[in-house]
Design a protein around this nucleic acid. Structure first.
Lengths: 217, 217
DNA sequence: ACCTGAACACCGTTCAAGT
DNA sequence: ACCTGAACACCGTTCAAGT
């Protein structure tokens, strides 16, 4: 990968997202990123203040990909659209929720906070008071990022159920004693056939049922 | 800290939990952990196979602190008790959800999976079919771990709102333009006064309302 | 203005060596 | 049996130096 034109913040962030997608959060190092850009590690610091800045930058990008809700929708329709859009945006870049969860990324720019503002706006439309909005916002955000986390990490990750690691699952299934964990082992067999986005939608609809009930009280 | 008796896996894990509580996930390194135990880093490998093993070990400990649900409770009472107990156990050890979220910990022992089995068991009692149980389990787990993640990281963390960082909040409040983020900035002022466990309970109750409605259909 | 080389203070882990 | 010292291949980041 030869490079004549000078680097830029955008090019660094492009490469960082690509590298993180290929190698995971651990694989995203200043030295590897520089190599990918055909440059020495220290050159990156001309365009980015440090690694935390890179992680904030890629997180902000993902936040800014989230569509704004249609204000003509009823409030719970807006919440649903926002939540699903947020889930989809981050599911495309699984390292970003990981960086957020560990506080390695914490973007506080307008672009990153806009989706949150839209969500909060929809919840105020529902008629919650301030504390009610705060709780509802926390509930929706928790479900989104928790779902991403379970999607991304652990025994339900694509990685684990990918073709390569299929044998690991078999080994795992054999190690889980159905006599000791009867319910879990019954469930384990059907995890590979799940559509995670559909599961998130189901969870979201259950939460929204509860939100609507709470708003009406 | 002098030490005459030999090390053991349990002592290593005790020290690891303590160090992680003091220094965070980043501060938990083999070298620092060894120093805390009055030993060289390489001695740890006699009692633990590597760092991932330590993280699995402390995660398993937290899982095993979760009380089993009272089988006399109705299914949704069992789910509620499990979820709250899980939240509380992990809230006491915030580095563990972080390690789980980034797949640095992934314990697969009986002790770690027992709480999950109990949760799944309660959901089968509700009358869901296999796919319904899987979705309900994902919903509950997502809400728990997402809530922990929001509690632990980012602008709602204790760290951020601790006495030391109070000025940071003020600076943040000043940087958030109410004209640009009207709803979010309205909410921001009251975040410091929140009881995060109470907020989790509110979110959980909303989700359970939705779960009950889904089970009855 | 933009990039680099050498250096510093760290990591996890290995391996042969000590007691 | 249990612990250690030196070493290896990495990190993020600094700083003075190159063009």
């Amino acid at each position: 990968m030869s490079r004549r034109e000078p680097l830029s913040r955008d090019k660094v962030l492009d490469a960082a997202l690509a590298l993180a997608a290929e190698e995971g959060l651990d694989g995203l190092t200043m030295r590897r990123l520089a190599k990918k850009l055909g440059v020495e590690a220290m050159s990156l610091y001309r365009h980015v203040s440090n690694k935390a800045d890179i992680l904030d930058g890629i997180a902000e990008r993902v936040f800014s990909q989230i569509d704004r809700p249609d204000p003509a929708l009823p409030w719970h329709g807006q919440v649903r659209a926002m939540a699903l859009g947020t889930y989809r945006a981050f599911a495309r870049h699984p390292v970003v929720p990981m960086a957020l969860a560990t506080d390695q990324a914490n973007p506080r720019t307008l672009a990153a906070l806009r989706p949150l503002d839209d969500l909060v706006g929809a919840l105020f439309q529902a008629g919650f008071d301030d504390a009610g909005v705060r709780r509802a916002m926390a509930a929706v955000n928790s479900l989104i990022f928790g779902s991403l986390m379970l999607t991304t990490a652990g025994f339900t990750s694509d990685d684990f159920y990918g073709d390569i690691d299929r044998q690991q699952l078999d080994g795992y299934l054999r190690r889980v004693d159905p006599a000791q964990l009867p319910h879990f082992s019954r469930l384990l067999a059907l995890v590979p056939d799940t559509d995670r986005e559909k599961d998130f939608e189901a969870a979201l609809d259950m939460l929204i049922t509860g939100l609507v009930a709470a708003a009406e009280r």
